[in-house]
Every structure is written in C-alpha cells, then in structure tokens.
C-alpha cells in the first residue's frame, strides 16, 4: 500500500466509526428487548412472562435489558447477568443443571418406565382359554365368573 493512502484510509476508518456509532445510538428495538424478555419471568408477579408484564418492576427490567443490549451484550450474557443478580427463578426455561436437572429427567424417565410396564402387561402369556370360544359368549362361563366373584366377597 502506498504511503500517501494512509491518511485516506485513516479518514475513512474514522468516518466509518462515526457512522457505526450513530447506528449504535439508534439502540436496540422494542422487538429486540422483547426477544430477551420473553425468556424471563416477572420478578414480582407469579410466572408472568417479562415481555408482557405491566408492573413498574418489569418495565425497569426491560429498560435494563435495553441498556445491556445497547452495550453490546448477547442474549445469553444478559440472561446470565440476571441469573447472577436475582437467581435462577428469572429464567422461564429451567436450567438442565444441578438440582434443576430433575425437572428435565423425570418426564422421560416416567415415559420409559411406563412404556416398560405397558410392554410387560401386553407380553405376559395369555391365560389359556378354549380355542375359538370367548368366555363372555358362553353363559356357563359367565355364571362361573359370577360365582367366583361372589365367593371372594
């Protein structure tokens, strides 16, 4: 690169920097703020998503999110910062770590165990019945069942 181009490049960089800073001053849009807020819940009301809550506390939190977005933090960084300050309860989606892992583990575990139970129930050997004759179709068998039930009373 020719030496005499340096001032030109420097000037261009300065202008670019200025232009970028103007863009940055535009700041994050409401939609950006809501995108982050939606993943958190209101600090004072029970379980109300942060993006829709109308309380004063929530609008302060949203302002805080806006400030952090403007400072260039990513969504994940902002959430981590809120967790650090206020605890895990600010997150709408519980973390899959520590004690909270339990909330993620049990439903699939229950499904697997239930599935095994169902499989065991359906594969157990069938009780031997005279072929081609349903016990319900046979009044004698019906009476037999009745008698058996009565005996057990």
């Amino acid at each position: 690169m020719h030496r005499h181009l340096y001032p030109a490049v420097a000037t261009a960089l300065i202008f670019l920097g200025l232009a970028l800073s103007v863009v940055a001053q535009e700041g994050p849009s409401d939609d950006d703020v809501n995108r982050v807020a939606r993943q958190m819940v209101c600090p004072v009301c029970e379980g109300i998503p942060l993006d829709v809550c109308t309380t004063e506390a929530c609008s302060q939190w949203r302002a805080e999110i806006r400030a952090q977005l403007a400072a260039g933090h990513s969504d994940e960084e902002i959430k981590a910062e809120f967790v650090r300050q206020y605890g895990e309860r600010v997150l709408a989606l519980p973390l899959a770590a520590g004690f909270t892992l339990g909330v993620w583990v049990l439903p699939p575990l229950a499904l697997v165990l239930g599935g095994l139970g169902l499989w065991a129930y359906l594969r157990r050997p069938r009780t031997s019945e005279p072929a081609g004759l349903s016990p319900v179709a046979d009044p004698a068998a019906l009476a037999e069942i009745e008698r058996e039930v009565r005996e057990r009373l």
């Binding site: 993943q39 819940v41 379980g47 998503p49 605890g87 895990e88 309860r89 600010v90 997150l91 709408a92 989606l93 519980p94 973390l95 520590g98 004690f99 909270t100 909330v103």
Partner: peptide
C-alpha cells in the same frame, strides 16, 4: 435447596 426456580411455558 432453598432457591426458587421457574418452570415456564417453554418447558
């Protein structure tokens, strides 16, 4: 654990 968590709609 003494700490509150939220199980929200995304879960």
């Amino acid at each position: 654990t003494g700490s509150q968590i939220t199980v929200g709609p995304p879960y």
